[in-house]
Design a protein around this nucleic acid. Structure first.
Lengths: 248, 248
DNA sequence: CGAGGGTTTGAAGTGCATCAAATAGTGTGG
DNA sequence: CCACACTATTTGATGCACTTCAAACCCTCG
């Protein structure tokens, strides 16, 4: 699969909204110990439980966070685009990564010591507050995720996922492009690839949308909203929940 | 159902581990604006989306947190015992409660203004750090919850729930008492009461445990661990994940 | 053009939900 | 202390959603 267009431009650590209240000296100490590296698809960055010394910034590419059980089942925690960081919550979690991280598209990562982050949180109250906001935002997403997995069926979950990819302000026809493989989307939504395929067809029939490969065309978002949002506790324009590091 | 024994003693706000780094003046200002009230089973404390001015401390009793969709389905977020607080995360969430709260056993609550909390977080760096730890702990729980709901089947989820109720250090025979109605446990685990009943029977047959009403007797935790923990990414003694405000 | 991965389709099985009804358990008033 | 009322729990029967295994199809890329 081709790398999506919005991935072609490298992201910069100054764009991390978590760091928006940090001064130059903080970025300097980060830069001094930052290591940049390219990875191929399939590369495992770290494993759940590994000693966590560094966190990662995604300069370009896509990263899958997941957990694996003894009997081999895999649960996808999240799939992160460029501009996101991961592995940073180990500050508070006894030094161990709470999930494994795998490269799912050719990716450039910048790793930096968690200790710098911890120090900044202890010294800079605004940074602590930013971190709290960020975690609160993440928490809302996770709460929604749990709700959706217990209440929504497969077609509705896909519809909801598509809505969050779309420009929710747009009134007329909309075009949505899946950001990564359908198999990955399926795992992200907690279902099998076959189920995804069948559920997408059901959604298509129910809403009249056109599916061509990874692109989905729709007369308007209304049908999708009607179909999916009835099985969700949030109000429709729910875009705000999406960006884990959205501007305040 | 009778109120469990450990509920008979009222909890005090000084026991909240989130507040362990706060000084007397903080507790004084809380006390000055605290309101205590008793509630009967079934009483709704607030609804998802309500304007959030106050947070609540459970002095005694049990509270169910949940969300409801347009078409009436309900997803239980958590069921909290005495000693816990809820509604406090609205500090960062545009002033609206992210879930609804309902009394499921006769309960005494103490409500206090969220603004005092927000001020303390801004002024007291240690408080901010405590809050971060608390949220990180919650996050781990939520991550585990999502994993379990996608990977574990109903009997395994029950087994895991029982394990977290038990004293995991105990080597010999163990007795576990369900903290609230089986119907509530079922909703907490995201399944129907009928499914819970059948799944518990399956678990009983698979592990040799004895079930008498709300009490469960077991020769040792081993069978339960074998049965449930194979479908979990955490290592067995996972008790530490449970107490949302565990000591550091 | 052929290889290989991603995607779709088919057939069959499993797990959980749902609806309905029986049973057990608890609290009440006589 | 017993009978009744009411609720919690269990059991039975059935249906649907999703999974699993298998195979076909399609697309991309060398």
């Amino acid at each position: 699969m081709k790398t999506p267009a919005h991935n072609l431009e490298d992201k910069d650590i100054h764009e991390i909204s978590l760091f928006k209240n940090c001064d130059k000296s903080f970025f300097d100490s980060l830069a001094a110990q930052a290591q940049e590296q390219k990875y191929e698809k399939g590369k495992i960055i770290f494993i759940h439980g590994d000693d966590a010394q560094r966190f990662y910034f995604i300069k370009s590419g896509w990263i899958k966070l997941f957990r694996e059980t003894l009997d081999g089942a895999q649960a996808v925690v999240d799939i992160l685009p460029a501009g996101q960081i991961f592995g940073e919550t180990s500050i508070f979690e006894d030094q161990a990564y709470p999930y494994s991280a795998e490269v799912v598209e050719p990716t450039t990562l910048v790793s930096m010591p968690i200790s710098i982050l911890r120090k900044e949180i202890e010294d800079n109250n605004k940074m602590a507050y930013s971190m709290l906001s960020s975690m609160a935002r993440y928490r809302r997403q996770q709460d929604r995720e749990i709700e959706h997995r217990s209440i929504q069926n497969a077609p509705q979950r896909i519809g909801c996922f598509l809505l969050r990819l779309a420009d929710q302000e747009e009134a007329g026809p909309v075009s949505i492009h899946l950001p990564y493989d359908k198999t990955l989307v399926a795992s992200r939504l907690g279902m099998q690839p076959e189920t995804f395929s069948r559920a997408l067809a059901k959604l298509r029939d129910a809403t009249g949308m056109k599916v061509k490969g990874a692109t989905i065309e729709l007369q308007s978002l209304d049908q999708l909203v009607n179909f999916s949002c009835a099985a969700c506790s949030s109000e429709f324009p729910c875009k705000d929940l999406l960006p884990p590091e959205a501007p305040e």
